[in-house]
Amino acid sequence: MKADMRVTYAVTRGCTKCGWCVQECNFDAITFDRDGAHINQEKCTGCGRCYDNCPSEAIERIEHSEA
């Protein structure tokens, strides 16, 4: 990853509501409700554990170039 690249993660509509990402997150940044998982961007450290461990590949990795 380039130094000027910031990465965030987002839950897509492909979420099957299994809840596994909640368990994987070390920073309590993911909550879960009837609609599925939600990532709290303020708590998210960008570690990517949810992305790596989502069995449905329903978490999207978004790269932001910082000008």
Binding site: T12, G14, S56
Partner: peptide, 12 residues
């Protein structure tokens, strides 16, 4: 498949 409207609206 992953990016389809189908998966987004009817994932199961």
């Amino acid at each position: 498949y992953q990016t389809s409207e189908f998966k987004a609206t009817d994932p199961r």
